[in-house]
Amino acid sequence: MNIPADLKYVDTHEWLRLEGEIATIGITEFAQEQLGDITFVELPAVGTHLSAQQSMGAVESVKAASDLYSPVSGIVLEINTALESSPELVNNEPYTGGWMIRVKCTTPPQGLLSAGEYAKLL
C-alpha cells in the first residue's frame, strides 16, 4: 500500500499536502481501492468556505458512494477539473493526477496523521 511519507492524513482517508497555508487534498490509495472504479467526483465550487470535518463533496463508484470530508478549514482556491471527464485519475494516480481541491487554510490544520500513524489505521 502506497502511503507517501511527505503527506499528512486524516482518518476519513483523505490526504493533504501542506505548502505554507495552501493545502492540496485528495483521497488515499486505500480509499480508492475500497470504492473500486470511480465514476464521478463531486467537488465544492471555487470560493466555498469549508470547515474541518465538514462534507465537501462525494465520490461515486458503480456500487458505492462516499462523502468527502475536508481535513482543514479554509477557502477553496482551485478544483481539479480534469476529474470531470477522467474520474479514473483518482484510481490510477490518487496522490498526483487524482488530487481534488486546493484550499487556503484559514486556521492552522489540527489533528493530522503522519504516514506511519495513518498506516496503523488500515
Binding site: T39, F40, K63
Partner: peptide, 13 residues
Amino acid sequence: TLQAREQHIRRAK
C-alpha cells in the same frame, strides 16, 4: 446506471 444516486446505495442521502 448512476445507481449511486439511489436509496439502496445512498440511503438517507
